[in-house]
Design a protein around this nucleic acid. Structure first.
Lengths: 245, 245
DNA sequence: TCAAGTTATTAACATATGTTATAATTGCGG
DNA sequence: CCGCAATTATAACATATGTTAATAACTTGA
């Protein structure tokens, strides 16, 4: 196994041919370090590169002119960041490192070449992009139609699902390097209210949290509370074009 | 020019070659009628076809077990529906006709063939899918971080922008065939509260609404209130692979 | 080990939004 | 043109969440 976590990720969804692996790996070069808190790019920046996360967490955020912040999405190891920069010149959100990170960049033109040379990869990129849309639908539904506790439950479960998919482990203890303010900005609540809710959820023995660790104490109840559906387990690739030679 | 509104739509973003046009048009066959209110498919249905909207409006919605509904997205003429069914077997949301509609269906396998034969189209589909993601980001930010009035303003402006892009007209009067309950389900509010807000916005001379018509009376103020950004005007296709033959 | 900055906790109070219910309108089929 | 069903309009009241502010508990680096 190479050290390319992008290959590892994609290979989970689709059995890549050696040529395809090589193509994917070539997108992932010259890893760079970014310290926690640094900004990989900023809302409105002219954008011509994509990123692949090697190690660490990042988050996309967007700010209202009032200074209020909404966290839109989290990015983990093996994630491609900035695909939106493919439809538009300027970035619709900022990318911030939530932990120390190792990241690769590649020019978006390389993506065009990949689309020509490797139709299956094109299909796979398209599918992954659809998975992300569905994840967004779920979050939209949570924000629009459920109360604070359910929103938090949803967030924790969805982060857990994605991290478990990456690690292969199924651990009730999850490292979530986010402050109460961050959590609030992710689910549309205030830091103060997040604090209240976490206290209640702790009293109700649903979760436990300290520092950057959240423990899912009663996962079945959390799932019911949040009406959570895990979308990230399997991809249906039965319709994909067949591999070339 | 053929009567294929999918070709018309795609051609707005990218100058299609005759071959590409033919390929796109072949996805759009056997138009069928659906009366307003009918359900094109339902959350959880096994899904192996995609839709293209010829005429009319549809909306995707998802229901919580409590019966609460969240409207996720609106679909207009030239839109492709169900791309999410490409990553997963079962539909993550229901599709309901908001007006009488004319719709075409095609099997998703056909999309795979298109990805092989026409890399530029693959890139275009990918880009459009990214546009939709960005639209979702905007809605997420609106739901998470702004109050009712701004959410409604956002909804009206975004629908207006999309319909104007389709029609080429820039009219302050927009036909929005949604009840106050529907509006509420789209922006995460109650029918009663939507009613209150519309009254206030009318008093403040921001909008006017009666029956299924909304008039943007003071569009600049609405834009400021909503912090609205129009994403649907242009697509950056400079990175696309070049056309074949 | 201290000092300084973050992060978390709690309280009192303010407000946006939800709930329920009822009446007024409007639209539509016969 | 009538009457039923859906939509809209209001009111009174309940509650979730926001705001501000003050203190406490941590982290971190010198």
């Amino acid at each position: 196994m190479s050290d390319s976590c992008f290959v590892v990720r994609l290979n989970r969804y689709l059995d890549l041919t050696p040529t395809e692996k090589k193509a994917v790996a070539s997108l992932e070069r010259e890893p760079r370090d970014y310290p926690s808190g640094s900004m990989l790019w900023q809302e409105g920046d002219d954008l011509s590169e994509l990123l692949i996360v090697h190690q660490g967490w990042a988050l996309s955020e967007s700010r209202l002119p009032t200074g209020k912040r909404q966290i839109l999405r989290f990015h983990f190891s093996g994630d491609m960041i900035g695909a939106s920069g493919i439809a538009f010149r300027d970035a619709p959100s900022s990318i911030v490192a939530a932990t120390d990170m190792v990241v690769c960049r590649f020019p978006r033109r390389a993506l065009g070449e990949t689309f020509i040379e490797h139709p299956r990869l094109a299909a796979l990129f398209f599918s992954i992009s659809q998975m992300e849309s569905i994840d967004l639908y779920d979050r939209l539904r949570a924000l629009g139609r459920s109360e604070g506790k359910a929103r938090l439950a949803n967030l924790f479960l969805s982060i857990a699902a994605r991290m478990r998919a990456v690690s292969g482990q199924h651990n009730p203890v999850i490292r979530i390097p986010l402050t109460q303010s961050d959590l609030g900005d992710a689910v549309g609540l205030t830091q103060v209210h997040v604090n209240r809710l976490i206290r209640q959820m702790t009293e109700e023995k649903l979760i436990t949290r300290n520092r950057s660790t959240v423990t899912l104490v009663d996962e079945p109840k959390l799932i019911e509370l949040a009406r959570f559906v895990d979308r990230f387990s399997a991809l249906d690739s039965s319709w994909f074009p067949s591999p070339r030679g």
